[in-house]
Simulated scan of single mutants.
Amino acid sequence: MKKIGVFVDRWMSGGIESYLVSNYESMDLTHLDIKIITTRKFSDIYDERLKEMNIEIIELLKEGKDSELNRTFKSRASFKQVMAEENFDVVHLNIYNGVSLSYSKLAYKLGVKRIIAHSHNSMIGNVRLKQLKMAAHTIGKVRYQKYITDFWACSDLAGKWLFSSHHEKNIRLMKNGINAEKFTFDKNKRNLFRKKYALEDDALVVGNIGRLNNQKNQIFLIDLADNLRNKNIQFKMMIAGEGELKEELEQQIKDRNLENNVCLIGTITDTPTFYSGIDLFLLPSLFEGNPIVGIEAQCSGLRCYFSDKITKQLKIVESSEFLPIDSTDHWVEAISRTAYIKCDRPKMVKAVKDKKYDIKDTSYEMNRELLV
C-alpha cells in the first residue's frame, strides 16, 4: 500500500478538484492510500464522492481570507506536522505558481522520497500587488525546484510557467481527462435544459461555465452580448458559476438593459445537461492551464470559441477556434458566420477518446505513475 499526500492550496469546486476526484473514481485504489491536504476547505460538493473512496481531507488552517503567500506561511507548521505523522511515500503538489513549490522543501526535509509538482496554471492575473506576486513566483520557481522529483503539467504553457527551461525535457504532460460518455450530446437533456429556462427549441443559446472572476473574464462576455444585440443577432447567453464578480456582472447587465439576453444561472451540478442545452461555448479567459470545461464542451459537440491566450493543446475538434480578446468584433463575426451551421454532435465524443482525453486513459496513466 502506497501512501499518497495530495496537496491543493484551497479545496473548492473548481477544475483541480474535479480533475482529481474524477480520476480517483476511475482508478484502481486497491494499492493506494490517498489523503488530500489543503490550507482551507471552502466546498463540500465532493465530500460524498470522496467518502465513498475512503479519501480523507486534512485542513491545515481555520477559516479565513488571505493571500496565497500568507496561507503558505501560516500553514507551514501544520503541513510539517502532517508530513511527520503520515509518513507519505509520495506527495503530489497541485499548484498554480512558484510560491506553493515551497511545500516541496518541507516534504523533502521530512523524508518524502518522491515529490511531484503538478502545474495547473500559466499566469498570474491582473490582481493587486501583481509585481510582488510575480517576484515571489519567480523566486519560488528558482529556489525550490531542486526538491522536485517529478515535473507534471496539464499543458505546454503550464509547464513553461512553473518549471525552468533546465527541466523542459523532464516535464510530463498529464492531460485533463473527462468521462467522455457522460458528456456526449443528449437530445433529452437538451430539451430539459431549454424547458427549465424557457428557451425556444430554435433559439441560439451561447454559454460559459467558470468562476466569476477576472481570470475567466466574463466582463468580456457582457461586452460581447451588447455588441451581438446591436448587430440584431437574436440570442440568449447563459453564464454559469459564482464568484467575486457576480455583483459587477449583475450591474453591467442591468445598466446595459441586457436582462432579456444574459442570464446568470449560478452554480450548476449537472454540467452535461448544460452543454447539451446550448449551441455555442465561449471561453474568453485571460489565462488558463488547460481548462476542463473546454474539453467537456468539445466532447458535447459544441462549436467552441476560446481566447487566444489559452494553450492550443486545448483544440480537440476542428470546429474549435481561438480568437483575440482585444476586441469583441472577432467574436461577433465568428458567431455570425457559424451560429447555425449544423453538425453531428454525438460523434464528437470520438475525437476526445482518440486524443486520449477520456478519463479511462488519464486515470490509468495517473494510477501507473503513482505506483512507480
Rank of each mutant, 00 (worst) to 15 (best):
K130T: 09
R345Y: 07
G140I: 12
E25F: 04
K113M: 08
E63A: 13
R76G: 02
L249S: 05
I95K: 09
Q251S: 12
M53P: 09
D358F: 02
R256M: 06
M237F: 03
A225P: 01
H31C: 09
R128W: 03
A180Q: 08
K350E: 13
Q313T: 07
T328D: 09
I219D: 14
G64P: 05
S100D: 13
L283R: 04
R172K: 15
E321P: 05
N367R: 04
E17G: 02
E244L: 08
L132W: 02
R10C: 10
E86A: 03
D28A: 06
E247I: 14
Q313I: 05
I171R: 08
V262Q: 01
G15A: 14
S336K: 15
K62P: 07
K113R: 12
N54F: 06
R71A: 10
K130G: 02
S164F: 03
V372S: 06
P284A: 13
G125F: 06
C263H: 11
L32S: 11
G294A: 00
N227I: 04
E248P: 04
R40F: 02
I295M: 04
Y19D: 03
K65G: 11
F73A: 14
R229F: 04
Y340W: 10
K196I: 04
L286T: 15
G125Q: 11
T30P: 00
E48Q: 15
E85S: 09
I222R: 01
Y364S: 07
